[in-house]
C-alpha cells in the first residue's frame, strides 16, 4: 500500500531530522467542559506536543482504565458530542496548520454519525489520523476506503499479544504511525519495562518502516525521555487526564490554574523527549 504523504508523516520526518523522538499528548475532547478543553487544546503545541491525540468521548470505553473512562463521562455530562469534537478540531485548525491531530475513540458514535459522512466531516475539520480502538484490521474495511481516499491516516494498535504472525496483518493496513500498546491492560494502569518495550519496538520494526509511537503507562518526563529514545514517539494520556480530575471543584467545574498545570506537565514531558539526546533511526 502506498504511504500517504500526510501531516503526520511530515511531522515524523521533521522529528527524524531533529534527531529526537516526539511527544504525543492525549486528552479527551470536552473534558471537563468545552471551554476548558478548548483552552487546553490551543495550548498543547506551544507547550511542546508534537502530535495531538484527541479522545472522542464514549459511554463505554472498554479498553480504557478509570482515569480516561471518567474523562469520557465528564465530557459527555458537559454535553460533548461527536459533532462538537469535530467542530473543536476545526477551530484548532484555524489557529494551527501544522500540528497533526489524531482522533481516538470507539466505533459506535462514528457508525451512528455515518462512516462516510464522518470521514468527510473529519477531513473538513482538519483531522489527520484516526485510532479506532474497537476496529481491528478484521473490521477496518468499515472506514479505510473512505479514509484513504480522503488522505486520513489509519493508525493501528499493536500489543504485546501481537506476535510475528499477527503483526503483518496489522501493519500492512497501517499508515501514519504504528501505535504500540506497551502493556496487556487498560490505559493508566501499569508501566512496562523499558527493555521489553525496546525489544517489542525492534520486533515491530522488522515488519514496517512506519514510525512507532508507544503508549500506556507513560507518566513522567523521565519515562517519556526513555521511550522516545527507543521509539519515534511517546504517548502520554492518563497522567494529563489525572491533572484535570485533580483540579475540579465539588461541582465538577475546572478550578483556576487547571489549564496551566496541565500544560506545565506537557512542557516538562516535552523537555524530557527533547533532552533524550539519543538519535532515533
Amino acid at each position: 500500500m502506498s504511504r500517504i504523504a500526510s501531516r503526520i508523516a511530515g511531522r515524523f520526518e521533521a522529528l527524524k531530522e531533529q534527531g529526537r523522538g516526539g511527544l504525543i499528548t492525549f486528552v479527551t475532547a470536552g473534558d471537563p467542559d468545552l471551554e476548558t478543553s478548548r483552552d487546553i487544546l490551543m495550548g498543547l503545541a506551544d507547550a511542546g506536543a508534537d502530535l495531538i491525540e484527541l479522545g472522542m468521548p464514549f459511554s463505554d470505553p472498554m479498553a480504557d482504565g478509570p482515569a480516561i473512562q471518567a474523562a469520557s463521562l465528564r465530557a459527555l455530562k458537559s454535553g460533548m458530542t461527536l459533532k462538537k469534537t469535530l467542530a473543536l478540531v476545526a477551530e484548532f485548525r484555524q489557529q494551527d496548520k501544522d500540528t497533526p491531530v489524531v482522533l481516538m475513540g470507539y466505533y459506535n458514535p462514528i457508525y451512528i454519525h455515518g462512516s462516510d459522512a464522518f470521514i468527510t466531516d473529519a477531513k473538513a475539520a482538519g483531522v489527520d489520523g484516526l485510532i479506532i480502538v474497537d476496529l481491528p484490521p478484521e473490521e477496518m474495511h468499515e472506514l479505510e476506503g473512505a479514509a484513504h481516499a480522503a488522505g486520513i491516516d489509519i493508525i493501528f494498535l499493536t500489543a504485546p499479544t501481537s506476535d510475528d504472525a499477527r503483526l503483518p496483518v496489522i501493519v500492512e493496513r497501517a499508515s501514519g504511525f504504528v501505535y504500540y500498546v506497551s502493556i496487556t491492560g487498560v490505559t493508566g494502569t501499569g508501566s512496562a519495562d523499558i527493555g521489553d518495550i525496546h525489544s517489542a519496538v525492534e520486533r515491530i520494526r522488522r515488519h514496517t518502516d512506519l514510525p512507532i509511537g508507544v503508549g500506556f503507562g507513560i507518566k513522567t518526563p523521565e519515562q517519556a525521555a526513555e521511550i522516545s529514545s527507543v521509539a519515534n514517539a511517546a504517548v502520554v494520556g492518563s497522567a494529563l487526564v489525572d491533572i484535570i480530575a485533580a483540579n475540579l471543584d465539588a461541582g465538577g467545574k475546572a478550578k483556576p490554574g487547571l489549564v496551566e498545570k496541565l500544560l506545565g506537565l506537557v512542557a516538562d514531558l516535552a523537555a524530557g523527549v527533547r533532552g533524550a539526546g539519543k538519535k532515533v533511526t
Binding site: 494498535l157 500489543a159 499479544t161
Partner: peptide, 20 residues
Amino acid sequence: EAGHFGIYGGRFVAETLMPL
C-alpha cells in the same frame, strides 16, 4: 467465517484481545 450474521456480529475488539 468472520462471525457475521448479515451485517451483524463480527469482532469489534481492541487489538490486545484479537489474538485471544
